[in-house]
Structures are given as structure tokens and as C-alpha cells.
Amino acid sequence: MTRPTSSTSTPFPPPAGARAYPLRTARGEFAVVDSPVAAGVEPRGVALLLPGFTGSKEDFHLLHEPLAARGYRTVAVDGRGQNESDGPAEDESPYARAELALDVLAQAAALGTGLHLAGHSLGGQISRAAVLLDHSPFASFTLVASGPAEISESQKQRVKLLHDALAVMTMPQVWEAILAMGPPEEVGGPARGFGTPEQLHLRWLNHKPAQLLATGRQLCAEPNRVEELAAVPLPFHVLSGARDDTWPVTLLDEMAVRLGAHRSVIPGAEHSPNLDRPEATAAALADFWDDPAAHQDLSGRS
């Protein structure tokens, strides 16, 4: 496994014991937070964590410590054009779903094989595309609050509002509009994200408009690829909160059955269980990673 050799200055400090640095890959550099296994704990594996729409690697900050205590090194990444990872501001072509999937495979190649892959919301759908291209780098795949196809109608309307705003306003102007509206996290609202108000503001300004436009369209038009994914020989895990406005929990339940996946529902959590109930979420992840094959239910696969 590749180990970080240096840390970089960032306005988004990593948790205690973790390091923030640019991960060098064959497809460029990606900003990561890399948290090692806790001292004195036997290493059990490495996990690659991908954030959701308008999110960033910081959304996994509260998972690093409990997962380190369970023996897992965790690497959370900003995707292309997200927060501290660079990307074009206006050209949407590098944010095509296939391109973002290749980025994930490049990140995996830089870290080594046998990775536990986990993607939240949009990150889950990008991860799914990567797994469908090449599952060989991964030991398991967890979809965190990430559904089988397009997002709900209510969330589509919110994404459309964001797209309409980006067409006529600058990123700072859109932020001011967001603050005035107070929308949920999928529209970039300040209430859902890890950090101070100043950090959330900076994170928004760091996002590339082309990334938001391209991935927002993808969320609104994602095809159902559950049947394709079910044919992949990997252990699957579907994890969510007990309530979700982006993909109804019943839809996630059905997807888990189709995948023969282990299913975890975190009580008291909504669309971001990693933020709402991090200890319970970390426990569910580690329990699955400890022996993914033991949780696999092939009876649900077609």
C-alpha cells in the first residue's frame, strides 16, 4: 500500500493523527485525508471514501477515529473539481460519469488493491461506475445513502434551482442565495457539512461550477444499474439512515435485496449518517469490513 510522504497546508485541518496531502495518481492529484490505524491496533484493511454532491472529504472526518480504532486506515478524497481537488471551472467534459469513474480507479491504483470502497450519495453512484468498469482493486463496496437510479422528484427540483442559479450568478452570489433559502444538503446548504461556517463557505467557493452542473444532471438522470452491479463478484453493503429524502429507504431496502447485500439502517440518521450518527455508522462499516463475505446474501441476486 502507498503511504503518504508529506503533508500539505490546508484551511481544512484533518482530524488528530490524520494527514492531508495531494494523492498522486496517473490521472492527476487528488486532495485526501489519510488516517492510519490507531497505535497498538492490528491493521485490518484500507478504505477509500468518496463524498456526495456539494460535499467533500471533510464529511468523513468523524469516521476516521472510530474506524482507526477498529484497525482500518481510511482515505477520504475530494473528487475532481470538489473542494481542494482541481478541475476545470467551465468545461464539463472531464466530469462525465465515465471520467469520474476512471479517477476512482486511478486513486485505487495509487493506494493499492484490496480496498474497501464506500461512496456517499453521488459518491456511491460514481463508485458504482468504477466497480462496473473494474472491480479487481476492491475487497468490498458500500453504498452510503446512495440509490439505484435517479434522485427523488423533490431533490430534482432543488438541483434544478441550483443549476438555474449557476446560469446567472457567480459562486459567491449563489452562496448568499443558499443562505437566504436555507435548503437541505443536496443544494449545498450550510447546515449539512463538517466544519465552521467559514470553512463551509470556502468549500462552496472551491467547488468548480462545471462539476456541480455535470454531476447534478447525472443525479437527475442516473439509469438503474442494479442488475449490472449484482453480476459483479463483490460483497455489497447498503447503508443508510432511517429516513432519506433523496432516495426513499424502501427503495434502498429493495436495492439491497436485489444485490444480495448486507443492509444497515442507522437509527436517528437521515441522508448523511456519517455526520448524523458517526459512531454507529463507523461500527456498521467496520462490522461489514471485518468479514464482508459472511454478510453476503446471494439469494437476492438475479
Rank of each mutant, 00 (worst) to 15 (best):
S264Y: 04
A139P: 05
G188P: 08
P4H: 03
D59L: 03
G300A: 06
S240Q: 00
M255H: 03
A210H: 15
A282P: 09
L259R: 02
D245E: 11
A231W: 00
T5M: 03
T8E: 10
D78M: 07
G114R: 04
A165F: 10
Q155D: 13
L100H: 01
S93D: 15
Q211D: 09
C220P: 00
T170L: 09
T113W: 00
E58L: 06
L251A: 09
N206G: 05
P183R: 02
Q173R: 10
G81H: 06
G79P: 05
S56A: 15
H262P: 02
R277G: 10
G300K: 02
R128H: 04
D134V: 04
D291T: 07
A47C: 10
L285K: 05
M169N: 13
F288V: 01
Q107E: 14
S121N: 09
Q157F: 08
H61K: 04
V257K: 02
G40Y: 12
P184T: 07
R258F: 05
W175A: 13
S264F: 01
R24A: 15
S9N: 11
L48D: 00
D78F: 08
A177W: 13
D134G: 04
D276M: 11
S93C: 10
T10M: 07
A177N: 12
R128C: 06
T2C: 06
R263G: 04
A294T: 12
S264A: 14
P248F: 04
T196L: 06
I178F: 09
P22V: 05
T10P: 07
A294R: 14
V168G: 06
H207I: 12
V46Q: 08
P137C: 06
E92P: 11
A286S: 13
G45D: 06
T113I: 01
E99W: 02
E270D: 11
V41P: 14
R192Q: 11
A98T: 07
A177T: 10
V159P: 11
H201N: 12
T10E: 06
S154C: 08
K160L: 13
W289I: 07
H271R: 07
A180S: 15
G268W: 03
R225Q: 06
G195P: 01
S93E: 15
A282L: 10
L212D: 10
P51F: 05
N206R: 15
L234K: 00
P94Y: 13
S7K: 04
A149P: 00
A39I: 11
G40D: 12
Q211F: 15
E270R: 13
A284Q: 11
G195R: 03
K57R: 15
K160H: 11
Q218V: 06
A118I: 07
V75S: 01
A261F: 07
A130I: 02
H64R: 08
F12E: 05
L161F: 13
R19H: 13
E90W: 12
A89L: 14
Y21D: 02
S272E: 07
L166D: 09
P209V: 13
P184K: 02
A221E: 14
A230P: 05
A149F: 00
P292Y: 04
E254F: 00
P190S: 08
F141N: 01
A230E: 00
A110V: 13
A177S: 15
S7H: 06
